[in-house]
């Protein structure tokens, strides 16, 4: 990154730390990451590698696995845009305007995080289950909610709801409204201001948000498990299928699907890395040069 390029000229740069401290900090966070993420997940990927390519292909090409992949991708493809619209709208409202009850609203947005996944699924059962008023009506109209696609979609939207908004709010608050005010005073409309001024300022945080939302939408297990009904080849998403394989004593198969899921969920990350390479250091430092 930019600061490192200047390092050779000023070995004891006033805006950086001594090399020893730098390496120590890198080491500490690397060890932390290794203990909690890399080693455990490494064992997962390690087993897939040991089991070999053939076993991986066998699992992936099974029809139940393919249907799980399709289901997970369709759910994420709908849930992410949905939350994108919400996230931008909510963050815009919270960061750029002053109104009463803002803290309350922010807290409400965070709420799905604090709801146990077991409960996030259950609330939809309470709303649309067989002994409710709404559920049987919708079902009679040929539009079942729970134990069908809409229920899985709703549960996924619920658990991923805060991701994008939460990513944008601190950033947009830190940026303040000066740029927008300048744009408005120069005669730009609200929409123009948003597209030309706000969006470029928040694009990286937005991308992070989408990435997280997408990853979580694909990986959600608890909530979806409650509303799915676990019918193989029909309402089983990838995480549920992983559990099913694991319970079939097919640990290799389960871990193969898990690795694939991680790869799929991180597609956006790969995109971001590609963009970073293309635009160089500009990406990391945003507008402040």
């Amino acid at each position: 990154m930019a600061d490192q390029q200047s390092a050779p000229h000023h070995p004891r740069d006033a805006v950086s730390e001594p090399a020893l401290v730098r390496w120590l900090l890198i080491l500490i966070s690397a060890i932390f990451l290794a203990l909690f993420l890399v080693v455990p997940l490494g064992t997962v990927v390690g087993r897939v590698v040991v089991a070999g390519w053939g076993s991986f292909v066998d699992t992936i090409s099974e029809s139940d696995t393919q249907s799980a992949i399709r289901l997970t991708l369709s759910v994420a493809a709908l849930a992410v845009p949905f939350n994108l619209v919400f996230g931008i709208a909510a963050a815009w409202a919270i960061a750029k305007f002053e109104f009463k009850g803002k803290t309350f609203l922010t807290t409400l947005i965070d709420l799905p995080f604090s709801v146990s996944p077991v409960i996030s699924g259950l609330v939809y059962v309470l709303l649309f289950g067989a002994d409710t008023w709404l559920g049987p009506q919708l079902k009679a109209m040929g539009f079942p909610i729970i134990f069908a696609f809409p229920g899985i979609f709703l549960a996924t939207v619920f658990v991923t709801f805060p991701f994008i908004a939460r990513e944008l709010i601190p950033l947009m608050q830190a940026q303040g409204t000066a740029d927008e005010e300048a744009a408005i005073s120069l005669g730009a409309s609200g929409w123009q201001t948003f597209i030309r001024v706000t969006l470029p300022n928040i694009k990286w945080a937005l991308l992070y948000g989408v990435l997280l939302c997408n990853a979580r939408a694909m990986g959600e297990f608890g909530a979806v498990s409650v509303v799915s009904g676990h019918v193989r080849g029909k309402t089983e998403t990838m995480p549920l299928h992983i559990e099913a394989l694991y319970n079939d004593y097919s640990t290799d198969g389960a871990f193969a699907v898990a690795s694939l899921l991680a790869a799929l969920a991180l597609v956006t990350l790969i995109l971001r890395t590609l963009l970073e390479v293309k635009f160089g250091a500009d990406v990391g430092n945003g507008r402040h040069k």
Partner: peptide, 22 residues
């Protein structure tokens, strides 16, 4: 940087199984 998001992408059950095996 890329590894940071892995916990989101991993279904929680897989994370649990992986952690307990370690």
């Amino acid at each position: 940087d890329a590894l940071i998001d892995l916990p989101f992408a991993m279904p929680t059950a897989v994370a649990g199984i992986a952690l307990v095996s370690v």
